[in-house]
Amino acid sequence: MDFNTAEEMLALCKKENKPISEIMRLREIIYGEDDAQTVDARMRKSLGIMRNSVHKPLNEIVRSMGGMIGGEAAKLEKRRAEGKSICGNVLTKALIYSQAVLEMNASMGVIVAAPTAGSAGVVPSVLFALEEEFDLSEDELVKGLFTAGAIGCLLMKNASVSGAEAGCQAEIGSAAAMAAAAAVEMMGGTPEQCLDAAAITIGNMLGLVCDPIAGLVEMPCQSRNAAGASNALTSAEMALAGIKSAVPFSEMSDAMYRVGKGLPAELRETALGGCAATPTGCEYKCKIFGGCK
């Protein structure tokens, strides 16, 4: 039941006639440390933590450790509640929730890294936006998490989910690919469509650099989570409409890894390039850590 590539995973889905989520769940039960009951309970617990992290910052605004973010989710929610949002309910909610998780994270609240802490807003934001707008059950959301996990696992094995190794495309890009596949499966798509959505997402985020201001998981990480969530929903919509990715998932994941390896060190989480190296970025750093003239 284990797989190393998207092709092997797809073959298992066909052979067992099961969705990606179930293949991933069975794989965990067979090869992981926990029995079926514990595996399901752990995933439910993760979903519960995610649920808290998308909602709590809406009511309880806390400034981040570095002081760069806090209150963005509430601002978006206020606009949505007033009926002014230009993005429609699913996307707007995904944006709100993605911001909330990063606020939670940056203020030392509890989150679920998915696949990393800096990209933790993408997967839950897409899941809970769809849950509310399409009346999905908790079971369907848990399945979504297994599907997201399968895509993340493939990317961990064959590419990277580390900003320090392959840039933001490997963090937010991977999280968005995971969320896209989860969205497709939850909305009734096939395993092939899940992989198409994931591949389109990675393709659309290729080259994104990791350039955190002051080296902190605040900005531009927070708004990139919103970009990741909207990319995920865009690609899911395309895949569900039957649009295929021109480049298959495994080739796209290789491309992402090669692009990542080609990024200069300044753009791989060292806080020496991109947003971090702008005059404003440097000013933030001085304010937070001192030591400047």
Binding site: E28, A114, P115, G152
Partner: peptide, 14 residues
């Protein structure tokens, strides 16, 4: 690679 290494760890940020 466990699914909980991808969806996880559950942690206090950031």
């Amino acid at each position: 690679i466990s699914v909980f290494e991808v969806i996880g760890p559950n942690m206090v940020g950031p």
